[in-house]
Design a protein around this nucleic acid. Sequence first.
DNA 1: CGTTTTACTATACAACCGTTCAACAGTGAG
DNA 2: CTCACTGTTGAACGGTTGTATAGTAAAACG
Lengths: 201, 201
Amino acid sequence: MAKKTAPKFERIAPDERRARLIEASIACLAKGGIQGFTVDNICHEAGTSRGLITHHFGSKNALLAAIYAAIYGKVLVNLEKLETTPGSIDELVEMIFGDSFLSRDYLNVWLALWGEIAVNPALQVEHRKNYALYRERIARAISAFARGKGVTVDSYDVATILISLIDGLWLEQCIDQSLLSLDRAKDLCRRTLAAVLTAAT
Amino acid sequence: MAKKTAPKFERIAPDERRARLIEASIACLAKGGIQGFTVDNICHEAGTSRGLITHHFGSKNALLAAIYAAIYGKVLVNLEKLETTPGSIDELVEMIFGDSFLSRDYLNVWLALWGEIAVNPALQVEHRKNYALYRERIARAISAFARGKGVTVDSYDVATILISLIDGLWLEQCIDQSLLSLDRAKDLCRRTLAAVLTAAT
DNA sequence: CGTTTTACTATACAACCGTTCAACAGTGAG
DNA sequence: CTCACTGTTGAACGGTTGTATAGTAAAACG
């Protein structure tokens, strides 16, 4: 009598599979940068065979765009807290940082993606769309906060300064984590923001 | 009678050849990021055969480290102006920006290198060495400037803010050049620096 | 001029790349 | 249970990767 053999593979819904492949890809990007983003690595990380990427995404490049959208999506969701006007600069900074100053792994993923945006037209389109939303939300929060304090500022300029500062701090921490802690990064942001808003009065 | 045939290749000094290979590599990085950094691309760009990289650098990875050192060298040379104490914030910002806010091509090269630093130990060592020098020089310039104005600041903190801000503006401009001009970047730096220094009084 | 040195070319190589495709098998419908 | 559907596998593909190496030839030296 034949024993019932264990299934050779798991058969799951396309959406769920896509999510898993994206997750595995992020792990690969974190570990080896864009050069670690290979079909072999990803499928090994996801525990699937090599054919699945083409089947679910069409191409590796399309998968990359999906990854970018997924990651930016998390950031944008996180920024939804900014709908409520922050009462202090501390609160504002805390809201913007949120989970975005994540683990070193995530920073590496961003760095790898950024390096690709510059040379990959498909990613460029995806980026502009998301970045515009990102800046707009931060600008609006700054604008609301400043109005509450009776300060007049060009919120667009301040948002650019703040975003650039955060990105720069990210970069620094990403490249050499011994130089900068999360607390110090937040502190530098608070001080800069306070100074810029005061100067604008 | 046989005509004297033209030489099949140019035979030049190792140092000069290395410099040319580095230059060609930078062009490749600018065009295609780290994925464009291949032996085939580089040698085609440099007009040599594929064997030369191994011959002059030992490996492709060693070439990458040499590129990083060469580029950072240019930045550090540019910062030597900071030996003379700047008289105004305008002057300070102008000195720091210098040629560093170069062409978009150079920004792409930086981005490609940064993405590699995080996952390439050899580059990490090279980076820490250079970055420490970089930050120290800027901190010293800020310190001297502040002293001249009778302001007391933690120049290390202000240097970190300024460097992060510049890097973030770089990043922004690099990824989407339509968002930011050099003049606006300088202006944002001036305003932030002025505000931070004033707040410290 | 002939000799020596070594920068340089060109080929070969094994490993890996992304994509294609035919066959397989898990799963739900009937 | 049987069937149809399709998520999944795994081999095969042509092309590219970085490096090793044998041989070529340019230039310096005596």
